[in-house]
Computed example of a mutant assay.
Amino acid sequence: MTSLRERRRNETRRAVQAHAIRLFVEVGYDATTVEDVAKAAGVSAMTVYRHFATKEDLVLYDEYDPLTAAALLARPEHEPVVQRIGRALVDTAAAATGPHHADQALLLARLRLMISTPALRARHLDSQYATQSAIVAALCGPSPDPDEELPVRCAAAACLGAAHVALVRWAENDGQDDLPALIGTSLTHAFGIPF
Rank of each mutant, 00 (worst) to 15 (best):
T117S: 10
V81T: 15
E77P: 04
G98M: 00
E77D: 15
G98K: 05
P99E: 06
R121I: 01
R84K: 09
L106E: 15
D126N: 12
P80V: 11
A69C: 06
A96C: 08
E77H: 10
R121S: 01
R112G: 14
R84S: 09
R110W: 03
R121Q: 08
T97I: 02
A93F: 01
L113M: 06
A102V: 15
V81R: 09
L125D: 00
L120W: 00
A119H: 09
A69H: 01
L111E: 15
L106C: 00
D91A: 13
T117Q: 13
L67D: 05
E79M: 15
R112A: 06
D91K: 02
P66A: 03
V90E: 10
A94E: 03
A71K: 00
Q83G: 14
P76G: 06
T97W: 00
A70P: 09
A70E: 13
R123M: 11
H100K: 14
D103Y: 14
R75F: 04
G86E: 05
L111C: 07
H101D: 14
L120Y: 01
Q83N: 14
A94P: 15
I115P: 06
A122S: 03
L107G: 08
R87H: 15
H124Q: 08
A70D: 14
P80W: 07
I115H: 01
T92R: 08
T68N: 12
A94T: 06
R75N: 01
R75A: 03
A122C: 00
A70K: 13
L72D: 11
L89G: 04
R123Y: 15
L89C: 13
T97D: 03
M114P: 02
V82S: 05
Q104F: 13
E77A: 14
A102L: 07
V81Y: 11
A88K: 03
H124V: 05
L113N: 07
L67S: 11
A105L: 13
M114C: 08
D126V: 10
A122I: 11
R87F: 10
A94I: 05
L120I: 05
L72F: 15
G86Q: 04
P99H: 05
A88C: 07
I115G: 00
R84M: 08
Q83K: 07
A95Q: 06
A94G: 09
A96V: 00
L72M: 15
L120C: 12
L73W: 09
L73V: 11
D91M: 05
P99Y: 09
E79L: 12
R75E: 10
A96W: 02
A109K: 12
A71N: 14
H100D: 07
L67Q: 13
V90W: 01
D103M: 15
A122N: 02
R75Y: 01
L106I: 06
